[in-house]
């Protein structure tokens, strides 16, 4: 299990990286390497050119402002885990990131790499979906911002053009004191979840839910927002019955069927985890 031959490029600037990406056929960007390198070792992919982003400056940062946070594409998952700013402003990401692989893989793995790889069960794309992330991408014709809903096109397929690279991810802020719920069911710690759910809840002055977000991941090819549930929650006080109703709104989601679990199991888990994530978010928001 050794990588096939390729040419290696290690640009130091974003324009240089984009120029390389545009000038070669069959080129792949290498970020943290925690997904691409196994695929190379197993010879599932045969790129002619590997463009390593690890020396590109200006891609490794966490910026917080009034609108939310912006995270550079090459920011290591471990730095996200250790960020006090994120723990305060973006508790969902802080919690979810601890479930991404293991210490050794988070030390190398990146925010952008995980999002661009878009594994159906990965935590980072789920958080992005839950928070209406905006993905900044740069290509030969300049920069564009892609809402997550338009970014995650299908099973491990993004809206990035072959000559585009992901530069950063913006997560619009939720009100201070919002509650975040994160529930995943995997066979072992650090595994890709069989299914997971993320919930965000803002409570208004009246003690009722003012804003809600509910996302299911790992069930279908991409994370999905359960909008019907979100709408139904607003104006309600959290309770078992309310969360049951919200969870039922998951309905029969499009679900993957694989060696780990049949589709029906994933559909069932979606509801179970949705309810638990909502209850957790409510509890944390209310407190």
């Amino acid at each position: 299990m050794k990588p096939p031959p390729f040419e290696y490029h290690d640009p130091t600037t974003i324009p240089e990286a984009i120029s390389l990406l545009g000038s070669y056929e069959n080129a792949r960007l290498l970020a943290g390497g925690q997904s691409l390198m196994p695929m190379l070792n197993m010879r599932y992919v045969f790129p002619d050119h590997l463009i390593d982003l690890n020396k590109v400056g200006g891609l490794d940062y966490i910026n917080t402002d009034a609108d939310g946070v912006e995270i550079g594409g090459m920011t290591r998952q471990r730095d996200i885990e250790f960020s006090d700013e994120l723990a305060e402003h973006c508790p969902l990401l802080s919690e979810a990131i601890r479930h991404v692989g293991h210490i050794q893989t988070r030390n190398r793995g990146t925010m952008g790499g995980s999002l661009a790889h878009l594994d159906p069960a990965a935590e980072i794309p789920m958080v992005c979906a839950a928070m209406d992330a905006r993905i900044r991408a740069q290509g030969p014709n300049g920069e564009r911002t892609i809402p997550i809903a338009e970014f995650a096109l299908g099973f491990m397929t993004t809206a990035l053009a072959p000559d585009e690279m992901l530069v950063s991810v913006s997560l619009p802020g939720w009100a201070s004191g919002h509650g975040a719920g994160f529930q995943e069911f995997g066979r072992r710690h650090g595994d890709f979840a069989i299914a997971s759910a993320a919930a965000l809840i803002e409570v208004g002055g009246d003690g009722k839910i003012a804003r809600a977000s509910l996302t299911i991941s790992g069930v279908g090819p991409v994370p999905v927002r359960i909008e019907e549930a979100e709408e139904g929650l607003v104006g309600e006080a959290g309770s078992d019955g309310v969360f049951d109703t919200a969870a039922e709104a998951c309905g029969e989601l499009e679900a993957l069927d694989d060696i780990h679990a049949p589709a029906s199991y994933r559909q069932h888990l979606a509801k179970v985890l949705a309810k638990r994530a909502l209850a957790q978010a409510w509890e944390r928001a209310a407190s």
Binding site: M42, R188, H189, G190, D191, I259, H260
Partner: peptide, 16 residues
């Protein structure tokens, strides 16, 4: 064979 890597074939780890 369908489970030919350690993501698909699950060896027990310390947390379980």
């Amino acid at each position: 064979p369908l489970t030919t890597n350690y993501a698909d074939y699950l060896l027990v780890t310390a947390t379980e």
